[in-house]
């Protein structure tokens, strides 16, 4: 066990109340309330454009809300020094690796920039985290040489290096093939179980969501439609929730070219 994983790493809680945000007059978040317990694995699902990424950006302090409050471990996220003290990481939807650095430099950036470890140690940690996400041997590659899925996994490795107490995943399995997606899902779960990292996962992937969540929320149009355990969500009778959960590829009229006749 290295020093990083040996530190007592209890996750931190998160609470959001009355969060509002509009861009150029259109309201994207219309008064969200949300509570995530320390160590919980919380999944947020919702249709495209429903404001999931915007919500995450607020939670990690990249955007300032028009109204409402966000508390990380009981402290307002925008208060000075809070994000320096807490170790919070985010895996971006597109990876957001620095394109001018190699994969290894990207993954080790947090440690090298803050001078937390000597270079040899950083190299070892980077190799370890890359192996964890199945990217061993890609240290010297540039992000542009990776596929979308590999970039996403490198971004995950970069987030793990921070040794986070709270981690946000934005669409961790989109662009991944089913096998890797399952591996990543398992990794998210394992990280949460082993170290108690509070995890907030934003995804469209219903299988992933229902597979790993302790609790989940469904958002659409900037508000929470339903929140609860996966079981509770499945039982929901909200029509939008039902539609989101039951959408499937089972078209009964795709067996051959048919032309609908309009009476």
């Amino acid at each position: 066990m290295d020093a990083a994983t040996a530190t007592s790493n209890t996750g931190i809680g998160l609470s959001v109340s009355g969060l509002r945000k509009s861009y150029q007059g259109t309201e994207v978040l219309c008064g969200l309330d949300l509570e995530v317990q320390p160590g919980e694995l919380f999944v947020i699902m919702g249709p495209s454009g429903s404001g999931k990424t915007v919500l995450l950006k607020h939670l990690i302090g990249l955007e300032t809300a028009d109204a409402g409050e966000i508390l990380l471990a009981g402290e307002p996220v925008q208060a000075p020094g809070v994000l320096d003290r807490l170790r919070v990481a985010m895996v971006f939807q597109s990876g957001a690796l620095l394109s001018s650095l190699t994969v290894a430099e990207n993954v080790g950036l947090y440690l090298s920039e803050h001078r937390l470890k000597p270079p040899a140690e950083i190299q070892r940690i980077v190799a370890e985290k890359l192996a964890l996400v199945g990217l061993e041997g890609t240290e010297a590659k540039m992000p542009a040489e990776l596929s979308g899925g590999m970039r996403k996994r490198a971004a995950l490795a970069r987030a793990l290096v921070i040794d986070p107490q709270l981690i946000f995943y934005d669409e961790p399995t989109s662009e991944l093939d089913p096998m890797i997606a399952v591996t990543i899902g398992g990794e998210i779960l394992r990280l949460n179980r082993r170290m108690g990292v509070t995890s907030v996962v934003v995804t469209h992937d219903r299988e992933l969501g229902f597979g790993i969540a302790h609790r989940m929320a469904l958002i659409a149009g900037g508000t929470i439609l339903a929140m609860g355990t996966p079981e509770e969500i499945r039982q929901s009778d909200d029509p939008t929730v039902r539609r989101f959960l039951s959408a499937s590829y089972d078209f009964d009229d795709t067996k051959g070219p048919t032309h609908e006749k309009h009476a």
Partner: peptide
């Protein structure tokens, strides 16, 4: 491409 955002989330 959100690289600046990524820096911020790493407290850089």
């Amino acid at each position: 491409y959100q690289e600046v955002d990524a820096l911020r989330t790493m407290n850089i």
